[in-house]
Design a binder for these strands. Structure first.
Lengths: 218, 218
DNA sequence: ATAATTGTTTAGAGCGGTCTAAAAATAAGC
DNA sequence: GCTTATTTTTAGACCGCTCTAAACAATTAT
């Protein structure tokens, strides 16, 4: 039996380490989980014990095939529930995260299969992230952060990294949503702020925004 | 903060003690929770501490107004989820219980309000039990068990007590569902089995069935 | 290359929930 | 009413997950 907390750690390792294949430091994991390094160490040991993680002392942690399977499954559930909340229950994209964090741990294969069908097999969640299919297959989107985008090029917004309520509200206030066309006008070397054009209007965004907004070339 | 386990104990006290107002013995509670009496005692103390339960040593436990409010809220969530699973996700009434037991603990007021609206404010769950409204109001159904029904009288099936998979499957196999009209032909004093008529066909059922099937007069 | 800093692990403890074993209170039998 | 049986509570322990404090390894600086 896999425990709630174990699932959450596995998910964190997956996200921090680019699908769990890159090794993640104990501190980074602890920070992501809002716990202390010692707690992370204990959990890492347990995950290694149960064959969900690869671990060598002082060398960080990555996921085994089993661990990745678990992670992808949770992510699938999380994102399907997000679609449900937005499409059927009138949630906005900044309201879904906390609830989906709870719903993702419900254990029932039939539930998730039926939900998938009920939602008509969606491929992306409300933040633009791809939903793994039943086999765990991911459609990998070619995306770059706004910070790494090229001056003078037009992009389409395909996702966000930070999904905090504040950030999503900021985007709403500035008319940035999935599918919004964004042209990069100028990248300021001094403070890494970026001047962009949305729907004819110019807008100056900070480095923080640049790092958390994902685009693909239009 | 109220814990998962606390919620489950409160729910059990509510169900065992006729809406939580009747005092429940430690053993009965422990049995319902599949744990030992010592564990139940500990939890009862904690619930009393937090003002969810009335407790005097060796005198059993009942719910305070607060405790009842919590219980009703969980039951509301449980039953709404059951409706969702059956109406929207093609679950049968014997498949919903375990999943609803998990879903009932999801914390989000908006979630349950929206779900209620999405399901068009249902008043009963798939087992015929009433769903408390947002204010916790219960429609109390006048129901008797088949065992207590009178010979020669016709009834309508309005609910079940035991919602084990086996029992619900048994009912399905014998074409008994909510709304089914049942006429009580003869109650056998010797083994308390009961002869009933459903849809023109006669059927003999055991005392166990009689105790777990709820009817109201047609 | 040695010292200082940073990152990681261990040791020991606490909390929530469970258990067993034993003690205390209540209920039942005669 | 006294004894026996049952129910309930207490005491002490363990597991999962967390913490702090201290030890240990790795990295960086000088």
């Amino acid at each position: 039996m896999i425990t709630l907390t174990e699932e959450n750690y596995i998910k964190a390792i997956f996200h921090l380490g680019k699908q769990g294949s890159v090794t993640v430091s104990t501190n980074a994991l602890a920070e992501a989980m809002n716990t202390k390094a010692s707690s992370a160490t204990d959990m890492i040991k347990k995950l290694a014990e149960k064959n969900y993680a690869n671990y060598k002392k002082y060398q960080g942690v990555s996921l085994t095939a089993d661990g990745k399977r678990v992670a992808v499954n949770i992510i699938r559930k999380h994102r399907l529930w997000e679609v449900f909340l937005v499409d059927k229950l009138n949630f906005t994209w900044d309201q879904v995260h906390d609830v989906a964090e709870q719903l993702e741990h419900i254990k029932s294969q039939k539930l998730i299969d039926e939900l998938d069908a009920f939602l008509d097999f969606p491929t992306h969640d409300p933040h633009g992230d791809p939903i793994p299919d039943k086999q765990g297959k991911f459609e990998h989107v070619e995306k770059t952060s706004l910070s790494n985008a090229k001056e003078g090029v037009s992009y389409v917004c395909v996702g966000v990294n930070d999904s905090s309520v504040d950030f999503l509200k900021y985007l709403d206030n500035n008319a940035i949503a999935l599918g919004t066309v964004i042209k990069v006008l100028h990248k300021e070397p001094f403070d890494h702020s970026i001047k962009i054009k949305i729907d004819g209007k110019e807008l100056m965004v900070s480095q923080t925004v640049g790092k958390n907004l994902f685009l693909k070339e239009a």
